[in-house]
Design a binder for these strands. Structure first.
Lengths: 113, 113
DNA sequence: CTCATATTCAACCGATCGGTTGACGATCGG
DNA sequence: CCGATCGTCAACCGATCGGTTGAATATGAG
């Protein structure tokens, strides 16, 4: 029997499949950033980065909050956690070190609000 | 500075982004299977499944070995492990429970040949 | 008010994706 | 040998992707 598909994973993995987007995530790991600052190190247009950020936001991997005229981008590790849960637990195996991974995320990223 | 891109991850995450391919991986978790048997529960052509399997093989998530006229598909957890390593360690953080995860894979899938 | 900055929108482009169909090569069984 | 089975190949299709440009929309600064 085919396992029930988890539609959220499609977007998360598709978002992770692009090296530009993974680089953006790495940058956001260090700090929240404005769209323009995210775009600065890349050799592509601001509009392209804006699209990448929209894809990341749609997948849940980041959130975006507009304060004034600048839109701040913030890493959202929950989506990454879901993908990792699938990786470790897809199939019938117990997610043995899931608790440890969650603790890792808590420690690194702070408690989820 | 933008982190060096890891090209293998593109293919792995792209492969994981499709629900059909994830379902195939789940099926292969239980047992090695022939292409026709993989295709059986899906409502699409054999050629489509053959393509999906080729994509999974190109990403390294599975391997295919032709014995006689049937081609056997086998899960290759190494690629999944690489992706999981990136997830837990992307950025500068130490992969705290990577060892535990590798041990988990060893236990569940057996030692790598 | 005016000008600059921050970001998105809209249209467009070539490339790739996920799927189909039909023909084809290889291999097995009788 | 013959016919059925296993799997891929090739061409095609519409849809989506990743990128570009140029115009448009806020918002902030002076």
């Amino acid at each position: 029997m085919i396992p029930a598909p988890e539609p959220g994973l499609d977007a998360v993995f598709a978002a992770l499949a692009d090296p530009t987007r993974r680089a953006i995530l790495s940058m956001l790991l260090e700090d929240d950033m404005a769209v323009t600052d995210v775009a600065e190190p890349f050799e592509m247009s601001l509009a392209a980065i804006s699209k990448h950020l929209a894809i990341l936001a749609a997948s849940g991997l980041i959130s975006q909050e507009k304060r004034g005229r600048v839109k701040w981008c913030k890493l959202e590790p929950d989506a990454l956690k879901r993908a990792s849960v699938w990786m470790q637990g897809f199939g019938q195996f117990e997610p043995v070190n899931l608790d440890a991974f969650e603790a890792f995320l808590e420690r690194e990223f702070g408690p989820d609000p």
